[in-house]
Nucleic acid binder design. Structure first.
Length: 308
DNA sequence: AAGACGAAAGTGGTTGA
DNA sequence: TCAACAACTTTCGTCTT
């Protein structure tokens, strides 16, 4: 459920969402206001078909994925083992350990670099810590599965961030990710799809409502306008106006109408800019909205009154 | 003059043979 | 792999405020 509240962090009045586990989060700046969750990543699904990896289950100390090896390094053998080996095996042992060393340092180096990049992009986009953590976790798994091969590290980082945003219902558009990371939109989309498929991460189609808070606050719209926009959006979804269409366009159109009704008019261009769509798209969605819902009456009424 | 509206042609991505 | 297709964009002309 969503409700309106003043955010102590960014000061604005925003929609807050109260998620399952009692977490209340500002959908604009991502601030977690009340976090009653004991365990952080507990909702991660299991990778049953990939072979059980117990480290991901809900036991043990919490791990942080923003550290490059999660404190879980692996060493090949111990010195004590050496005494039991013949010279032939001993060579083998050294060779193996050398390999292990090379591999692990390579991975570590990669992770260190990648996580630095991840933090950079994440802070540029002002993403909440929880999203950053999840993205780091996704990236780490991607590395462990060798999914980075043939792709640039940066693009995988962006893909992981994009996925994490969606999972946390604070979506950013591909354009925003692209701007923040300097990776092509197309590329991010590709790696995003690849990584989520390979890791079996479930991707819910992004909900237009998740965009409204952010758009509304860049447009400095009132809380009433925001919640009205969400209402409009819901009825639009009920009329099945939303499927197949770009979520940002619909969110933008809802906001536009809502602003109109509340006498906080913004031009189509202004709305289009923050939503990253064109005026034309807004117009088309706007037209759909007027036709299917009877907002017609409300809008016309306002026009007669000369709009507050 | 600026914004709103709509038509037409172009673009990139998805789908189904 | 290719062609058809829908959604969205770009561009541009016209109408409204």
């Amino acid at each position: 459920m969503q409700y309106i509240k003043k955010c102590p962090e960014c000061g604005g009045i925003h929609l807050f969402v109260n998620r399952e586990k009692g977490e209340v989060i500002c959908k604009d700046c991502g601030l977690v206001v009340e976090d009653k969750m004991v365990e952080f990543n507990q909702e991660w699904r299991e990778f049953e078909d990939e072979g059980g990896d117990d480290r991901r289950r809900r036991t043990g100390a919490p791990m942080t994925y923003t550290q490059f090896d999660q404190g879980l390094g692996t060493e090949v053998g111990q010195k004590a083992d050496l005494f039991q080996l013949g010279s032939k095996d001993r060579n083998k042992f050294f060779r193996l350990r050398k390999w292990q060393y090379r591999i692990s340092t390579a991975i570590e180096r990669n992770l260190k670099l990648a996580l630095a990049e991840l933090k950079r992009v994440s802070s540029y986009l002002k993403l909440p810590k929880s999203v950053e953590e999840e993205a780091a976790m996704i990236y780490t798994q991607a590395v462990q599965r060798g999914l980075v091969r043939g792709r640039s590290m940066e693009s995988v980082v962006s893909g992981a961030l994009y996925a994490a945003c969606r999972r946390h219902e604070v979506p950013r558009t591909l354009d925003e990710l692209s701007e923040a990371s300097g990776i092509e939109k197309k590329e991010i989309g590709r790696t995003y799809r690849f990584v989520t498929r390979e890791l079996g991460i479930s991707i819910l189609p992004s909900n237009p409502a998740d965009y409204i808070a952010r758009f509304a606050s860049s447009l400095k719209l009132s809380a009433e306008t925001q919640s009205k926009a969400v209402e409009i959006l819901e009825s639009a979804q009920h009329e099945e106006l939303t499927s197949g269409r770009g979520p940002t366009g619909i969110a933008a159109a809802s906001l536009y109408v809502s602003a109109l009704i509340h006498g906080e008019k913004r031009t189509q261009r202004e709305v289009a800019d923050v939503a990253g769509v064109t005026e034309v798209t807004i117009r088309n969605r706007y037209k759909d909205l007027l036709e299917k819902l009877d907002l017609d009456r409300e809008v016309k009424k306002l026009k007669l009154k000369g709009g507050k």
